[in-house]
Amino acid sequence: MKLLVVSDSHGQTKELKELQTLYQNRVDAMFHCGDSQLLADQEELNGFLTVRGNCDHDGRFPLELLHEIDNHRIFVTHGHYYNVKMTWTNLAYKAKEVGADFVFYGHSHYLSAIMDEGTLLLNPGSIFLPRGRVERTYAIVEKDAKKIDVSFYTHEHKELFALRQQFLL
């Protein structure tokens, strides 16, 4: 299974179009963790499973979504209702509640990948306004029977090799 995760694009459309072109036929799903600041029917979001962030005003986006791929449950939220700027613990509790194998979120603009009791909690950073780093980022998550690989890429689609993480199952 291969997934693309992006968040906090804040009105930028060029980057989302590039991600569509590069990945829509190379991944099993593309997720946008909110604050796109676009309308739900804008073509730049075609192919993305998208949630509503605190800066999104289109009520057609769900606040959360639970999606299944290959018997894996993926929970997606922006994170502002879970206080992610202070802790990821609330998301870990939510993951247990909904039986999620993966949790994707945004809001803080800080990239991170943490394995908590068998659940991957991932923030891809921001494709437009990063915090903690200068690179504008998104993530690719790949899972096979033995491991989960997380790779972070710049908005120019260059892998940040020093940030690559592997979690053995």
Rank of each mutant, 00 (worst) to 15 (best):
M1T: 14
L3N: 02
V5R: 03
V5Q: 10
V6H: 04
S7I: 06
S7T: 08
S9F: 13
S9E: 13
H10F: 11
G11A: 13
K17D: 03
L19G: 10
Q20F: 05
T21N: 09
L22F: 03
L22E: 07
Q24F: 04
N25V: 00
R26T: 06
V27T: 04
A29P: 01
H32D: 03
C33H: 03
G34P: 08
D35Y: 05
Q37A: 14
L38R: 09
L39W: 09
A40G: 07
A40I: 12
A40Y: 15
Q42S: 14
E44A: 15
E44T: 09
E44M: 12
L45C: 09
N46I: 04
G47N: 08
F48L: 02
L49C: 08
R52S: 09
R52D: 08
R52A: 09
G53T: 08
C55G: 02
D58R: 08
F61L: 04
F61R: 07
F61E: 04
P62M: 07
L63W: 13
L63Y: 15
L65V: 05
L66F: 02
H67K: 13
H67D: 11
H67F: 12
H67Q: 12
I69G: 06
R73S: 15
I74N: 02
F75E: 00
F75Y: 15
V76R: 00
V76Q: 01
V76P: 06
T77N: 07
G79Y: 00
H80W: 01
H80D: 15
Y81G: 03
Y82W: 14
V84H: 08
K85A: 12
W88Q: 15
T89Y: 13
T89H: 14
N90D: 12
N90R: 15
N90Q: 13
L91I: 11
L91M: 12
L91R: 12
A92K: 14
A95N: 11
V98S: 10
V98C: 12
G99D: 12
D101L: 11
D101S: 12
F102A: 01
V103D: 09
V103I: 14
F104G: 04
F104Q: 03
F104I: 04
G106Q: 03
H107C: 05
S108P: 09
S108I: 05
Y110H: 12
L111A: 09
S112I: 00
M115K: 13
M115H: 08
E117C: 13
G118M: 04
L120Q: 05
L120G: 03
L121H: 02
L121N: 06
L121F: 01
L122W: 00
G125T: 00
G125A: 07
S126W: 01
I127D: 06
L129M: 14
R131Y: 08
R131T: 05
G132A: 10
G132I: 03
R133A: 09
T137F: 00
Y138D: 05
I140C: 03
V141K: 02
D144V: 07
K146M: 14
K147Y: 02
K147F: 04
K147M: 11
I148G: 03
I148H: 01
D149H: 04
D149N: 08
V150Y: 00
S151R: 15
Y153V: 02
H155G: 13
E156K: 10
H157E: 00
H157T: 00
K158T: 08
L160Q: 02
A162H: 12
L163P: 01
L163G: 03
L163C: 07
R164I: 00
Q165T: 08
Q166L: 03
Q166C: 10
F167G: 13
L168W: 11
L168G: 04
L169S: 13
L169T: 11
